[in-house]
Simulated assay, not measured.
Amino acid sequence: MNVLYTAKASVSGEGRKGYGRTDDDRLNVELSVPKGVGGDDGPGTNPEQLFAVGYGACFHGALKKVARESKASVEGSTIDTRVSLGSGESGLNIAVEMDVTIPGVEQAEAERLVAAAHEVCPYSNATRGNIDVTLNARTA
C-alpha cells in the first residue's frame, strides 16, 4: 500500500470511558458508555458514534467520486448512518445501516451510484465480509 495519510490518535482512561484525541488536537473528545451496554450515557461520545460519522463521511466522498466519474449529479445528497452494537455467537459485534439520499435522480440511478460507491469506499472495503452493512438508496 502506498500510504497517503495516517491518522494518529491516543486514548486514555478506562477504555470506553475516558478521553480520545488526535495528535494535532483537531479531535479531542470525552468518551462515555451508552446505557444500552451498561453505561450511564455520560456527556461524551462513544466509538460507535465516531465510526458512524467516519464511515458516513468516507462513503459520501466515495459517492461524490463515482458521480463525478460518471457525470451524474449527487447535489444535495446526504448520508444517515446507524452503527449498532450487539451480542452474537462470537461476543460483541457491530452492524451498519446507511441511508443514502440522492435527490433529483431516478431510483435505479441512485442504486447504481450507491453500489459503485460501496465498491470504492475504503471503509466499505475494510468492513466487507467482516460485519453486516446494509445500504438503502433513496431519492428523497
Rank of each mutant, 00 (worst) to 15 (best):
A110M: 04
R68K: 14
G38Q: 06
V100I: 14
T22F: 03
L31P: 01
D24V: 09
G39M: 00
T101W: 07
K35V: 11
S32A: 07
K8Y: 13
E119C: 09
R26H: 10
N28E: 00
H118R: 00
E111C: 00
V33R: 06
E14A: 15
T45R: 14
E14F: 14
Q49G: 02
H118V: 03
T78Q: 12
V3L: 13
A57L: 09
P34M: 05
K8C: 09
I79K: 15
A95G: 15
G44H: 05
L135A: 04
E69D: 14
A117I: 02
C58W: 06
R112K: 10
R82E: 13
G91Q: 12
S10V: 14
S12V: 11
R128M: 02
D41W: 02
P122M: 09
G56D: 03
A9C: 10
C121R: 08
R21M: 04
T22H: 06
G76I: 02
G13L: 04
G18P: 09
V133F: 03
F59P: 06
A67E: 01
T127M: 06
N46V: 07
G42K: 05
G61S: 12
D24W: 08
S32R: 02
T22N: 14
I79G: 04
H60A: 15
P103L: 11
V3S: 14
S70P: 10
G88Y: 07
G91K: 12
A72E: 08
A115W: 07
E97S: 12
V120E: 08
C58S: 03
R112I: 02
A57N: 15
G44W: 06
Y5C: 10
L63C: 06
M98R: 13
G13P: 05
V29G: 06
D132S: 11
V29T: 01
N130Q: 00
M98F: 08
A117Y: 02
T139I: 07
V3K: 11
